[in-house]
Design a protein around this nucleic acid. Structure first.
Length: 660
RNA sequence: GCCGGUAUAGCUCAGCUGGUAGAGCACCUGAUUUGUAAUCAGGGGGUCGGGGGUUCAAGUCCCUCUGCCGGCACCA
């Protein structure tokens, strides 16, 4: 007999060899029906896998996180089986669970088409209807490799060969005639898989994620516990697409992109640039208050400078090179660059230039830390497939700064930075920030003691700012560890925004030094840091975060004064003057249109406040305010309205200053 | 850069098996002076992404280049 402890603490006895399925059945018929797998002493078990002895058992159903993952994992297997039955010339590779679903990578000469999806889904449903038992088998590594090789599954054989240590057994799951290498666990049979899945997209993916390998065909799918959840998910995607910054950027006339005229560079329109200017002004105030010195450095620098910094050797293929010469010859004639032309490069980053500024004159230990900030416009020749809206561009402006400090100042400066970043993100409405700490890579500069101090310094800084942090071992730059601060866009794509990187190397390479208290020359440590990351990316994320309905302080047009009849035109202009005098961005709409039409149009533009004026308001010197997102109206005296809206439109940092 | 898809009016899109382009919105003109999410009528606008080919004839078929979209790789 074996003793089983259930999650509620109660105990039951079972025959030797009993499985979680027996446990579920003994509890209730409905639980037996809903059971997908079990947690046995914390480890996930197949429902029919016999218990090894006394155990704590929790039955997993579709309502558990693990249950949903099982469903998705099985959906991937059923997909693979369906595809191989329909296209026998296909090899399977891997098919993991991801957020909201799964994917499976197939190797096949001929490309699949999304038009095949419907037929594949039908085939998957057939496999579910056949209700094949899913059977776990334990094979030896050698047998497995031989078997998979024999049936032409070279990728599988390779996976087993590479991943499984010699002599260790592997598990194989069979469903009908089809089987796959898999750690498991799985559902007891294919019939348990809810018909609440959908194939979503087709994409290329390199075998093992390495671009030197062949490209496989990846099928993405989504799978849920029931049809209702699936529908809800599809609806969420649809809603998220409406928030796409590229779409809203066009709708609200914020910016445009022209891949032919300037691939990967943004044409900012007045509306979008107004948002930019508010953000820039805000950041400038925050930096001023934190003791930064704002500077401006050259766009083009001699290649010699980039050689010194090390960028020329390592990152040249991502830099825009500009030969410094005067073209000769007739108009329309091909320009040839003289061989002896000096080469310049558009800056891909600001650091070397900031070191140059630091190096001017003598620096004492008393001067440190020196914090040099720049809204630096950088160019990077990104791979074409990487460009994405305004999130990943080839010309972008960083809210960059470099802190030159002594080693004993690192922790304090890092803490100050994390606190500032946290406060800034909060001001923009971001509560959840993902923080990653990338630690020392195998190949690195500097001693272990230095790395110990640096990594601890960054970790202490994040902790002090009260931010949760994930460690990415070995992901740091060769010159130092780094913190990355990530935000998520509407579709769930994660973007790096803020960063803090410790650097002992560049000051050395470029010869930055200060005079220490004992009169010796010392190297400063350099902290590369950005809060927003790039203006472009950050604004892109803001657009998606707010669906284009910016908070009042950021909105391109804050108030629209809209007339009902032309009798109120003159008063509308006066109202606008009053509102503008209060510091607001105001537009007037005196067009010969119905008020319904105007309200609709400005609501679609997501203008925060519509001030309606008709004869009544003109007579009483009032305005009827309608807020974006609400139906009601508030009638206020003109002066009162101006001061009230202006107070609401105060940027968060100035509001705090005003409160104190 | 790689795999797949895609490109028609300012925008969103229609245009079957080849027979020299169409809708809605937007825009312009006129009428309408209107009280909180679309007033009515008329009008203008496209060398169908570029180049090449097949054909009596190409938006439609083929090749190629470019951009864009979805992934992958990359992201100092």
């Amino acid at each position: 007999m074996i003793n089983v402890t259930l999650p509620d603490g109660s105990q039951r006895q079972y025959e030797d060899g009993a499985s979680p399925a027996d446990v579920a059945e003994s509890i209730s018929i409905s639980l037996a029906k809903a059971a997908l797998a079990a947690k046995v002493n914390g480890e996930l078990y197949d429902l029919n896998r016999p218990l090894d002895g006394d155990a704590e058992v929790a039955i997993v159903t579709a309502r558990d996180k693990e249950g949903l993952e099982l469903i998705r994992h099985d959906a991937a297997h059923v997909l693979a089986q369906a595809v191989q039955e329909m296209y026998p010339d296909t090899q399977v590779t891997i098919g993991p669970v991801i957020d909201d679903g799964f994917y499976y990578d197939f190797a096949r000469e001929k490309p699949f088409s999304t038009e095949d999806f419907e037929r594949i889904e039908k085939k998957m449903e057939e496999i579910i209807d056949k209700d094949y038992p899913i059977v776990r088998e334990v094979w030896s590594k050698e047998d497995a490799i031989e078997t998979f090789k024999k049936i032409g599954e070279d990728y599988k054989a390779q996976i087993i060969d590479d991943i499984i240590p010699p002599g260790e057994p592997i598990t194989v799951y069979k469903q009908g005639d089809w089987f796959d290498l898999c750690r498991g666990p799985h559902l007891p049979s294919t019939g348990k898989l809810p018909k609440a899945f959908k194939l979503m997209k087709l994409a290329g993916a390199y075998w093992r994620g390495d671009h030197r390998n062949e490209m496989l065909q990846r099928m993405y799918g989504t799978a849920w516990a029931n049809e209702k959840d699936l529908k809800a998910h599809l609806l969420r995607i649809e809603e998220a697409e409406k928030r796409d910054h590229r779409r809203i950027g066009a709708q609200l006339d914020l910016f445009h992109l022209d891949g032919t005229a300037a691939a990967g560079s943004v044409f900012w329109h007045a509306n979008g640039y107004t948002v930019w200017r508010q953000i820039e002004a805000y950041m400038r105030r925050r930096l001023d208050a934190e003791g930064y010195d704002e500077i401006k450095t050259p766009q083009l620098m001699d290649s010699v400078q980039w050689e010194k910094s090390g960028h020329w050797g390592k990152y040249r293929e991502n830099m825009f090179i500009v030969p410094d010469f005067i073209p000769e010859g007739e108009e329309g004639v091909e320009i040839s660059v003289p061989e002896d032309a000096k080469l310049m490069a558009l800056k891909p980053m600001n650091c070397p230039a900031h070191v140059e500024v630091f190096k001017q004159g003598q620096k004492s230990y008393r001067d440190l830390p020196i914090r040099l900030a720049e809204f630096g416009c950088c160019h990077r020749n990104e791979p074409h497939g990487a460009i994405h809206g305004i999130m990943r561009v080839r010309q972008f402006t960083q809210d960059d700064a470099h802190i030159f400090c002594r080693e004993d100042q690192i922790v304090e400066e890092s803490i100050k930075f994390c606190r500032l970043l946290e406060s800034v993100y909060r001001d923009f409405g971001f509560e959840e920030i993902a923080v990653k700490l990338s630690t020392r890579p195998d190949v690195r500069a500097g001693s272990d003691e230095t790395w110990d101090r640096a990594e601890k310094g960054l970790k202490d800084a994040v902790d002090a700012a009260g931010l949760p942090c994930e460690i990415l071992p070995g992901e740091g730059a060769f010159y130092g560890p780094k913190l990355e601060f990530q935000l998520t866009d509407a579709i769930g794509r994660v973007w790096q925004c803020g960063t803090l990187q410790l650097d002992y190397v560049l000051p050395e390479r470029l010869g930055a030094e200060y005079t220490a208290s004992d009169g010796t020359k010392q190297r400063p440590v350099m902290l590369h840091r950005a809060i927003l990351g790039s203006m472009e990316r950050f604004i892109g994320i803001l657009i998606e975060e707010f669906s284009g309905a910016f908070p009042l302080w950021l909105a391109p047009a804050q108030v629209i004064v809209a007339t009902i009849t032309s009798d109120a035109d003159e008063y509308a202009e006066e109202a606008a003057r009053t509102l503008r005098a209060a510091g607001l961005r105001v537009e007037v709409d005196t067009r010969n249109e119905k008020i319904n039409y105007k309200v609709r149009e400005h609501s679609l533009r997501k203008v925060p406040v519509i001030a309606v004026v008709g004869q009544r308001e003109a007579d009483d010197r009032k305005v009827a305010l309608r807020r974006f997102g609400s139906q009601g109206q508030e009638i206020l005296g003109l002066d009162e309205a101006a001061s009230k809206i202006a107070a609401e439109a105060t940027p968060p940092d100035l509001r705090r200053a005003g409160d104190e």
